[in-house]
Amino acid sequence: MRTLPVGDRALLIEMADGEQAGALHAELLRRRSAGTLPAVREIVPAARTVLLDGVDDPGRWARELPHWKIPSLQIEEMDVIEVPVRYDGPDLAEVASRWRVAPNEVAEIHSSIDFRVAFCGFAPGFGYLTGLPEDLAVPRRATPRTAVPAGALGLAGSYTGVYPRSSPGGWQLIGRTDLKLWDPAREPAALLSPGARVRLVARR
């Protein structure tokens, strides 16, 4: 764990990898719901860091955090959000050839993975799902699409994500869902928030 200064009201906590960042994030949420966490406006996990923004005394956090006991992530104990997916995306053949499998095997492989929402970003409700093994990582498209429809399921590197709304995007699209990933009128607005466990359920 390394703590880095971010102005006078925030700090960035850098962990060895995404798994450890996820574990720290889970511990922060546990302490917040137990009422033992000092005031913090934003807790923003990312690839291998957690940002704490809107804190009174970042120096005190930086001194105390290294003494925390942080249990490792227990993904099997978390509630699962199921997202029905039709694996019929325009880049399915491309991904299949990179994985050296037949296109109809992509759904089976991908939907058998236990995903976790590592963090959100890019757009409201866009979750970066981890769980895809490194050897199945695929590069972004050389030329991003100018418009990706809402609900499109894509891969970039070892991340999986669903576009919450239509936007430009460079992820390799392998499927789509009809679920609304983001609805400001709903509580909660985001279907997938950091720390959630996700299963993609293949539909025909």
Binding site: V6, G7, R9, E42, V44, P45, A46, L51, F119
Partner: peptide, 10 residues
Amino acid sequence: LPSEGMVLGA
């Protein structure tokens, strides 16, 4: 740099 959280004024 792997994606990380950004603050106002960064």
